[in-house]
């Protein structure tokens, strides 16, 4: 294993960008990086060399991110679902999509576009517009790949409530990414 004194220069920026794409503010991302390096220092005897140091530290960081959302959920009282990023009412007119909110064709090569740095930046802006709990549900489930029951446990919500949070996240993100990345008006 390399000398801990070299870790910040070697891995700091990449770990910070990973954290920043998953939490809302730079200060929290910095705290997570600091905790990650301190944990790595304390547990370096457990590093077996089966993966790269960066992969090992990213694993530590992912645990820190999970704990971050668990702490946030404990500090934030559970709100009625209607207060979590609004309801789906905005998108429908009776049984069908409203004309204004009906999903548009994203054209071009959306799969390629969804792997771009521009998509990542737009996703971050769109996540910022969600409530903490709705964004947390999406980040843990879709970006971190945490099992649904673990996400529900961390956020302190029943599984059915998590499904609603994820639905709201997908609906809001779909609309936001359409306007800001895939099919901006006037493009």
């Amino acid at each position: 294993m390399t000398e801990p004194a070299t870790w910040v220069d070697a891995y700091g920026d990449r770990l910070f960008r990973y954290a920043l794409s998953r939490v809302r503010d730079g200060g929290s991302a910095e705290d997570l990086i600091q905790d990650t390096f301190v944990t790595a220092l304390k547990s370096r005897d457990r590093f077996k060399g089966d993966s790269s140091e960066l992969t090992w530290m990213t694993g530590i960081l992912r645990n820190k991110i999970f704990e971050y959302y668990r702490r946030q959920a404990k500090e934030t009282p559970l709100r009625p679902l209607d207060e979590e990023s609004g309801s789906e009412q905005d998108f429908f007119d009776g049984r069908h999509w409203s004309v204004a909110a009906a999903p548009r064709d994203w054209g071009g090569e959306p799969a390629k576009s969804a792997e771009s740095a521009e998509f990542a930046a737009a996703l971050r802006r769109c996540l910022d517009a969600l409530t903490e709990k709705v964004a947390g549900a999406f980040i843990l489930r879709e970006m971190e790949g945490v099992a649904a029951d673990e996400v529900a446990g961390a956020l302190g919500v029943p599984p059915g409530h998590l499904a609603v949070l994820l639905y709201r996240a997908r609906m809001r993100l779909r609309s936001c990414l359409e306007k800001n990345h895939f099919a901006p008006e006037g493009a």
Binding site: G12, F16, R17, L20, E30, I33, A114, E115, S116
Partner: peptide
Amino acid sequence: IRHGASRAPETGPAL
């Protein structure tokens, strides 16, 4: 969106 969220490159400022 699921595909992109799990694969998009990490961007943003350095530490």
